[in-house]
Computed example of a mutant assay.
Amino acid sequence: MPVVRSNAVDLCYETFGDPADPAALLVMGLGEQMIAWPDGFCALLAARGFHVIRFDNRDVGRSTWLDDLGDVDVRGLFAGDLSSVRYGLRDLAADTAGLLEALGVDRAHLVGVSMGGMVAQLVAIERPDLVASLASIMSTTGDRSVGQATLDDVSVLMPRPDADRAAAIAADVALYRLIGSPGFETSEEVLVSRATAKVDRAYHPAGTARQFAAIVTAADRTPGLRALTTPTVVVHGEDDRLVDVSGGRATAAAVPGSSLVLVPGLGHDLPEGAWDRIVDAIAANAARA
């Protein structure tokens, strides 16, 4: 897959559809590679008239791994020790903006899920010249009073550095059984297939920890969101256990003129049964640009 240099890191990317169509840049969430955007979802979006670009964020997949920066002390992080934080969400936003510039994309429709929604929000706030429209999906504002997980233990998000292949695959399947969509059936076969593809392509727990540190130390984006004039849609599952639906509501409330699409039964994943609803929301919002 092709790679471009952006903000002092190499970013691996892939495209779907006609390059002559308006660009839609997909920004993935915590620890997830670009293949977490299902091929079918990307193809569906391309069929709606977008040139779809998905990419690996820094520290995951086949983009630059920043192990030379050192590991994150996750326990210390929760105790208030920020000394092991290696970079912030603004760095990922700068990566994203730089990717668009490196590809010669003047303006793109930004679509971000979870952490990717946070990054997309920051790009819209700091580089509005690059953003034709914004779709913030299963994400939040950075205000700690909203969007908090309702899981008993968020440590399940952290892949184990010492896990062998079988254990890593099993852990990913278990995670998505926990945070996935109760209203949309995803077979065990699909979950195992997706987990296997991720582990075999690039298993990098240290990068997930560094991204996690960037999330938990990020500033509240609400003031910046209130100043946005970018056409914005906020999509959130009513059954999201990882980022509570209050995060989506707060995001929509902050952005002037935004629309809020709540999906019953949707959790913190992209099940095939919800693709049409999500793509419809993205396309309708983009048409306002």
Rank of each mutant, 00 (worst) to 15 (best):
V119M: 02
P128R: 08
D91G: 10
D172N: 15
R90T: 12
S83I: 01
A79N: 15
L122C: 08
M138E: 09
A120R: 05
G147P: 08
A132P: 04
S155Q: 14
A120Q: 10
E126L: 03
L122G: 07
A149N: 06
G80Y: 01
A79S: 12
D152Q: 13
G104T: 01
L103T: 04
D164H: 09
S133M: 05
G116T: 10
T140I: 00
I137P: 15
A124M: 06
L110I: 11
P128Q: 10
V131C: 10
P159E: 00
L92I: 14
I169V: 15
G112M: 02
D162C: 06
G80T: 12
S145F: 01
A167W: 11
V146Q: 07
F78K: 10
R90W: 14
L99C: 01
A94Y: 00
G76Q: 09
V113D: 03
G76S: 06
V74I: 14
D81H: 03
R86I: 02
A132T: 13
R86A: 00
G142T: 04
E126W: 02
R160H: 03
S133K: 03
L157R: 08
T141D: 09
L77W: 12
R127N: 02
A108D: 06
G142A: 03
G88P: 00
A166P: 00
S145H: 08
A167V: 08
D73E: 11
D162I: 14
R127Y: 06
V123N: 10
A120C: 14
A163S: 11
A108E: 05
E126N: 11
P159M: 10
